[in-house]
């Protein structure tokens, strides 16, 4: 009774907490000093969202995607986006099978649970939209036939924010399809030293044991739905949303879908923090990743997305 307070806050289902902790720990064996980013990426996947990683080459975008797929025990495939990539290269093609006198569908690389779409902004809008439609629909339609994508299904897209020559940046409407946008950033001194000492990334990835499989991960996703989200918390989310709509320094306010994404991500983050209820802190933790790519400054010289979200969080009081 006396300590009923905090104990009740702790997660009831210890198995879920342990499984999630293990996943984070395994990925951290490959990606050093990026616990926060790993957790955000994992909560994005737990919330059934697609992830956009935006950073310069060589900071471990691909490794992160690969490690997540490996640890989660999910089928992984990689699509390198180039300017001459065609939708069929992503989705698959129907080829005439002379033996059977019929067209046969050859699934493209998108038919995997974790799809790494590398340098997505290099491809033409046509190829991009083929991917984005599949992301949205969780299915592929070719030659009048519909092919369901595996469950679970995630797209982890990367893009290089600089060197924009010859690229096709994703329009805002497409960015909205990603639940989160993350940047990885440089490792700190200690982590970098550890990285330099360690063996080959590829070998290490190979050696990573899977902690879950598709079925168990789907179960984890269902645990997210059970996380409590009180009216008081929704009050806070709504306060944040209306603040973006009233702020003069933003080009436009956030959509209801952004709010929905925020709540889902916050639930997953709470579960990752071993809690079965969402706190304002969870919202604040995921808000930069969820809102960052959705906000646009009214003036050109303004700060980047994450800074704008930080500013927003400081402005809005928790009701």
């Amino acid at each position: 009774m006396m300590d009923a307070g905090l104990k009740k806050v702790e997660i009831a289902h210890q198995g879920v907490a342990a499984a999630l902790e293990q996943i984070v720990a395994e990925v951290e064996r490959v990606i050093f000093g990026k616990g926060e980013t790993i957790r955000l990426a994992l909560s994005c996947l737990l919330a059934r969202g697609h992830l956009l990683i935006e950073d310069i080459p060589g900071v471990g975008k691909t490794t992160l995607a690969h490690a997540l797929a490996k640890v989660l025990g999910l089928q992984f495939s990689r699509i390198q986006f180039t300017s001459d990539l065609l939708p069929a290269d992503i989705l698959g093609v129907s080829v005439y099978d002379t033996d059977r006198q019929a067209f046969r569908f050859h699934p493209g690389p998108i038919f995997a649970s974790v799809v790494l779409a590398d340098e997505i902004n290099r491809a033409t809008p046509k190829a991009q939209s083929a991917l984005l439609e599949a992301m949205e629909e969780h299915q592929v339609t070719a030659e009048g036939e519909t092919h369901a994508l595996p469950q679970p299904f995630f797209v982890i897209a990367t893009q290089n924010p600089r060197h924009q020559i010859g690229t096709f940046p994703l329009p805002e409407s497409q960015l909205d399809r990603f639940l989160m946008r993350l940047d990885i950033g440089f490792p700190n001194q200690e982590a970098e030293r550890k990285l330099l000492r360690s063996s080959d990334r590829r070998m290490m990835l190979e050696a990573l044991p899977p902690s879950t499989d598709a079925a168990r991960f789907t179960a984890l996703q269902r645990s997210v739905d059970r996380v409590a989200c009180s009216d008081a918390l929704l009050d806070y989310v709504q306060a944040l949303l209306s603040a973006t709509r009233e702020a003069g320094w933003l080009l436009h306010g956030l959509s209801p879908r952004a709010g929905l994404s925020l709540v889902r991500a916050a639930k997953a983050w709470a579960l990752l923090s071993s809690r079965e209820l969402v706190l304002p802190e969870d919202v604040q933790a995921v808000a930069p990743a969820v809102f960052g790519h959705r906000l646009q400054a009214a003036s050109d010289d303004a700060e980047d997305g994450n800074a704008m979200v930080e500013r927003l969080l400081r402005l809005v009081a928790i009701p």
């Binding site: 300590d3 307070g5 905090l6 009740k8 409590a228 009180s230 209820l277």
Partner: peptide
């Protein structure tokens, strides 16, 4: 503070509706 904040979190964010709490 731990007890107070714990109770507060449970009641305000945990969906717990117990008058005795």
């Amino acid at each position: 503070c731990k007890r107070i904040i714990g109770l507060y979190i449970m009641l305000r964010y945990g969906g717990v509706t117990r008058p005795d709490f």
